[in-house]
Structures are given as C-alpha cells and as structure tokens.
Design a protein around this nucleic acid. Structure first.
Length: 524
DNA sequence: TTAGGGTTAG
C-alpha cells in the first residue's frame, strides 16, 4: 500500500477474508486507507461495517482513519459524524478533520474546527498548520492567514521549507503577492515545490510575465522543473499570448515524458486553444488515449472561443458517444456554440441533456439557455425558461430585451418593460437600446419615441449615439425622412457612422435622392 | 492514523 499499489494490497485483503483469516486493527486501517485513495466510499462503508462486527469501532486510531477515509472520498458528512461522536480525540483526530475541510474548500468549518481544537487545549504541530493554511487559502481569508503566519513564526516552524511553501501558497491564493514574495525571499531552502507554487500562483493571479521570469530564475538556480512547474508556465504562456514559448514548453514536457499525463495534456490543449492554435490543440487532444471531461471541455471551449462552433458541436457529440458526461462547464460553452450559429435544433437537444444530467436548476446554465433561445430567435422558449428562474439579474432581463430587439417584437418588449418595473428594477441604457431596436424593426414610431423620452426624463439616462441611431433608423424606416433628417441635424455632436448609414439607407429605400445627396455631401 | 504546489466557464 505504501508503494502506491493499493489495488494489489486490497486483493490481498479480499484473499485473506476468503481464507477465513480475521483482520486485526492494522489490517483494517490499511484497507480504509486504500479506500481513501483508490477504492472510494462505497467500499469504505463495507469495511466500516466489517470492523464494527469485529468490535474495533471504539479504537481511537481506527476512528481517526475513518474520519480521514470519508474525508478523502469527499463524504464530509460521514467524516464529521464520526468525528463528532468521538469520546476521545488526539491531535491526529483534529488534523484529519481539518485536513478534510481544507481539501474540499470548506475553509470556514476548517478554521472553526482549528479554533475548537485550541479551546480543548491541543497545541498545533506543523501538520495541523499545513491544513489550516490550506483552509485559509481556499476561502481567501487573508487576515486569518496573517495571524496564522505570526503564530507559526512564534512557534519557530516558518523555517521548515514545507511549512514555508504552504505559507507562500496561502498568500498567493489570498491574492497577496507581496507577502508571498517576502516569505519566498526569506526561505532558506527554495526547492522545486516553492518555486512552482510561486509560478503557479502568479499565473493564477493573471501575472503571466512575472511567472515566466520566475521560471527562468528557477532554471538559473539549477532547479529542475516538474509537472506542476509546467502547469504554471503553460498557463503563463497563454496569459501573455506567447505561442512560441508555449511550443517550446511543450517540447520540454515531452522530453520529461509528461505529455501522457492527463492534467498536463489538458493544460496543453487549453494553452494552445487560448493562443488561437487550434490545430495544435486538436493534435494534443487526438493523441490523448484516455480523455476525461476536462479534455473535452477544453477542446470545446477552444473551438467556441475561436468562433468555430460546428467542430465544437462535433466534439460534444463524440464526448457523449464515449459516455463522458457533460457538466456545469460544458453546458454554458456548448450553448454558446449553438447561439453563435443559431443552431436551434441542436440547442433543444442540448437543453434536453441539461435536464437528464440534472443541471436544470443551475442558475448559470439557466441564464445560458435563456440567452441561447433568444439568440436563436425562439422567444417562446426563452421566456419559458426565464419565467422558471428563481432569481434574475439585470443582465438576464437585458437578454430578453435583446431577443425582442432581434425578432422586432415590440409588444413583448413592452410587456416585459412593465413587468420589470413591477420588480422595482431600473432599466439601463442597454435595455432601452434593445427596446428601441425592437420598435424600429417593427416600425412602431410612437412607441419608440415614448421610450426614448421616458429614458431621458424618467430614468435620467443620457442617450448615447446608439440610442440616437435607433431613433433615426425608426423614423427613416417608416418613411419619415424629413423628421429623421431634422432629428439628425439637432444632435450633430452625437453623430457616428451608424447614424449616417441609417439615414442614407432610408433615403435609398424611399427613393429620396435629393435628401440622400445632401446627407452624403454633409457626411463627406 | 493527520502532511507543501494541480487542468476546463461565467
């Protein structure tokens, strides 16, 4: 088990049972640890039952291992239930519980458990500090992290390079790059972990160039990069848009035989796609023998970000054919692909997939569906989803109005304008722009005028060039060329090319060459 | 029995 061959070790455990040899406490502990890293919670529960039958459930080490096993399997509820029922606890019990919270991003509970540990008179050791630092990082609790850092210095543990890199990581995750720099500079031993933590942290915070500089500093210190260093550097490459360096890093990855590593390969796909090198991304994707959901998501996203919606839909189909389930990252992306090319039939199918995968209550995905139906021109379906949603922000309302604008449905726009007021939401400049566009497409002059005036007087929104253009377009399309021209002349400082275009197009549609020529020479 | 750095969206 300690050599990482958990499955083989577990086979021995099964064989032992078949031979009728009773397990002792150490065998149970090993079996539980294998469940924590390989077998999962369902096997863990079976072992748990078996050890209860053998009378080991009151043993402190066994209880601690159970807390750890359930936490590692992601079942914090079961972990917490055992921990809270413990009659007696030692530092390991507290450590296992805090590590569980920290690993799953439940930082507040992690810190709270740490506080309770103190109250019960336990002094933290370096292992406990590592988990609490992780908990702080996971919730970006910078002030708590600083206090912890001071405590660690007081206990003299900051000189340990393992604790040191955990402190660096905490500061980076909390966004305090200066603190991370200071701690890193003071580290007596800078190893590949602390260097990589710095590189990854800077890249995560969006500082690509600094991450690349750190990487060359690291090389000049003769530290050999590993998998995690590459993850940071690859991210830095796309942040600064340096495809050439990305290609070079790819060759470095290959020279360390890390290109078959799933996480590295996924990062390569993402790096190439974000640099716009779709062929290279696809090459890595195709060569990857066992793709996971992230591989598919990264490839789909790469296509969508570069406006290649059809291949994105193809990858989505093959993802489903191979039984890889789309998730909360896949859906917003693939729905956007449908919107881009107005693929309503495919979009409906994907909406059905959202329901079967039980993501239909996710507000981000719901918003994406409203947007997709509106952009695909199916306002009935867009409204249907919109009405089902629990909470709607101004952007989502705007999506409905944009849909109305595209389909020229001024009556629907009016209905939702009134509805919005019922929710005490103030329409913004963008909403008015959409409503005016809807009126203009429908030739509703009076309606459009009313909104324009209401926007200025009731909502105190200063009209932009887009709003003026809508009005010119509205007047021009309905043949009121003189009115349009007068309106146009009254606001010369607001004119832009779209306004001139709207006016000239209307002159042409209505065969008014005289006005058209006048406008043209004025525009010139 | 608890232990440092990990990929995809908006």
């Amino acid at each position: 088990m300690k050599l990482g061959q958990g499955n083989k070790a577990f086979d021995l455990y099964v064989m032992m049972q078949k031979l009728g040899i009773e397990a002792n406490k150490f065998v149970f502990m090993c079996a539980l640890q294998i469940c924590g890293c390989e077998k999962g919670a369902s096997t863990g529960r079976i072992i748990h039952d078996e050890l209860i039958k053998s009378g080991y459930e009151l043993d402190l080490s066994i209880q601690n291992t159970l807390v750890d096993m359930y936490a590692k399997c992601g079942s914090l509820a079961e972990s917490c239930s055992i921990f809270s029922k413990q009659q007696e606890r030692n530092i390991v019990s507290w450590g296992a519980m805090i590590a569980g919270y920290a690993a799953h991003g439940v930082g507040i509970e992690g810190l709270e458990t740490f506080r309770r540990m103190y109250q019960k008179g336990f002094m933290p050791n370096s292992i406990i500090y590592l988990s609490v630092l992780k908990a702080c990082g996971s919730i970006e609790a910078l002030e708590q992290g600083r206090l912890l850092h001071m405590e660690i210095i007081r206990d003299g543990m900051h000189l340990d390079e393992v604790v040191g890199s955990a402190i660096i990581d905490m500061y980076l995750k909390c966004g305090s790059l200066l603190d991370a720099d200071t701690v890193f500079e003071d580290l007596a031993i800078k190893d590949v972990v602390s260097w990589s933590a710095m590189i990854l942290g800077y890249a995560d915070q969006g500082h690509g160039q600094k991450a690349l500089n750190l990487y060359s500093d690291m090389l000049s210190e003769d530290i050999c990069p590993n998998k995690l260093t590459f993850l940071g550097v690859l991210k830095a490459c796309w942040l600064v848009g340096n495809l050439r360096q990305g290609l070079y890093m790819h060759s470095e990855v290959v020279s360390q035989s890390l290109d078959s590593d799933l996480v590295v390969a996924n990062t390569l796909i993402d790096m190439y796609a974000k640099c716009g090198a779709l062929n290279e991304a696809r090459h890595v994707f195709d060569l990857l023998s066992s793709k996971d959901g992230v591989s598919y998501n990264s490839m789909i996203q790469g296509y969508v970000q570069n406006e290649h919606s059809l291949p994105a839909l193809d990858i989505y189909s093959s993802m489903r054919c191979r039984g890889i389930r789309p998730n909360k990252v896949t859906f917003p992306t693939i729905l956007k692909a449908c919107s881009n090319i107005r693929a309503l039939i495919e979009a409906r199918q994907i909406h059905a997939n959202v329901i079967t995968e039980e993501f239909d209550n996710d507000s981000t995905i719901q918003s994406a569906i409203v947007d997709m139906y509106a952009k695909c021109g199916s306002m009935v379906e867009a409204i249907n989803m919109f009405e089902r949603m629990q909470s709607r922000d101004i952007v989502l309302w705007g999506t409905i109005f944009t849909g109305c604008a595209q389909s020229g449905d001024w009556q629907l726009a009016r209905q939702y304008f009134l509805k919005m007021q019922g929710y005490n939401l103030k329409p913004d400049a963008w909403v008015f722009n959409s409503i005016l566009t809807a009126c203009s497409h429908a030739g509703e002059v009076n309606e459009g005028r009313w909104y324009f005036l209401s926007m200025i007087h009731d909502y105190r929104i200063k009209p932009s060039a887009d709003h003026f253009n809508c009005i010119i377009d509205l007047l021009g399309r309905s043949g009121r060329l003189d009115e349009a021209s007068d309106f146009f002349q009254s606001i010369p400082e607001q004119l832009d090319i779209n306004g001139w275009t709207a006016l000239l197009t209307s002159c042409r549609s209505y065969g008014n060459n005289k006005l058209g020529n006048e406008c043209f020479s004025e525009a010139m």
